[in-house]
Design a binder for these strands. Structure first.
Lengths: 138, 138
DNA sequence: AATATTTTGCAACACAGTTGCATTTGCATA
DNA sequence: TATGCAAATGCAACTGTGTTGCAAAATATT
C-alpha cells in the first residue's frame, strides 16, 4: 500500500476504511483523472456504488480530490497536488482530455492564463480544459 | 417569430418543424445558454422529452449550437455566433457561469488566451469557463 | 473491552439520456 | 394541389447516474 494513504486520510480527519484506502490508492497509482465509472470497474464489486459516490464526495469536500468539468456529462476526479486546505481555491492548473484514449490529465505545472472579462463580471474560479491528442496516442 | 429561424434551419438542410422552430426561437430570444431542463420548462409539454434531446443533438451536429462544459453534470447549450460550418472549430470564446443565479453566458468577444502545453500534447480545442458573480447579481 | 460515532450496504427513488418502432409530418415531384 | 417518400415525432421501455433513509457493520474513543 502506498505510504501516503493513511497519512492523507488522518490529516483530513477521516476514519481509515477499506473503501477509502482502496479508492485513494487507485488515484495515487494512476496519474490520470478517474470518473466514478472507472473506479467502479477497477474496484470490482468490492464496494457498493453508493459508497463510492460518498467517498468521492467526501474527498472533494476535504480537498483531497478536485473535479474536472467536461462537455460529455461525466465528471472526472483528480488528486489535488498537495492536499489543499478545506474551502480551498486550488492553484489553477490546466486539464487535458485525450480525444482518442479518453484519458484526462492534470497538467500541474501549466497555470491558467489570466483573462480580461467585461466590466461587471467578478471571477472566482477559472477552469481551462484543453482537448486533443495525448503523448501516448501520437 | 424571429426572422433568422427559417433561414438558419434551411441553411443547415434541416426540415422546418414546430419543435425546431420553437427551440431555436428560445435560444435567439435569450442571450444565455440553456440546459435541456430549461428548454423543457419553457416549452411546456408541447414536445416530448426525446424530441428535445434529438433536436439539441441535431443542432450541435449542424453547428447551430455548441455545448459548454461544466463541473456540475449539466451540459448547457448556446448558439454559435454565426452558424459555423459543419465539422467546425469554433472561434474559441470564453464562457461565464454565475454562481448565484446559475446563468451561463457566452462572452463572444473574449477570446481564450493561448496556453503553452508540455511537448507531446496536441491541442485541438480549448474550453475556458470562468465562474463567479455576473452583472445582474452584483 | 465497551461504548459512541462514523461509515457502509441495501432498497428505493429521482433524474438524465438513449433506443426501437409505429405514426405523423414535411418536402419534393409529378 | 394531390401523392409518395424520407425524415421527424411520440411513446414505451430501458440504461446509467446520482441521492436519500435507515438498519447493520466497522472504526475510533475511553
Amino acid at each position: 500500500m502506498h505510504p501516503r494513504i493513511i497519512d492523507t486520510l488522518k490529516r483530513s480527519q477521516l476514519s481509515v476504511t477499506d473503501s477509502r484506502k482502496k479508492i485513494l490508492e487507485l488515484f495515487l497509482e494512476r496519474k490520470a483523472a478517474l470518473a466514478h465509472a472507472d473506479i467502479e470497474q477497477h474496484s470490482g464489486d468490492e464496494f457498493d456504488r453508493v459508497t463510492i459516490y460518498r467517498t468521492l464526495q467526501t474527498f472533494v469536500e476535504k480537498g483531497i480530490l478536485h473535479t474536472i468539468p467536461s462537455a460529455d456529462n461525466a465528471v472526472r476526479y483528480a488528486l489535488c497536488k498537495d492536499a489543499c486546505t478545506e474551502g480551498h481555491h486550488h492553484d489553477n492548473h490546466v486539464h487535458f482530455m485525450c480525444d482518442l484514449c479518453g484519458t484526462t490529465y492534470c497538467l500541474d505545472h501549466v497555470t491558467v492564463p489570466s483573462v480580461q472579462l467585461p466590466a461587471g463580471y467578478q471571477v472566482h474560479q477559472i477552469d481551462l480544459v484543453a482537448s486533443g491528442t495525448c503523448i501516448k496516442c501520437q
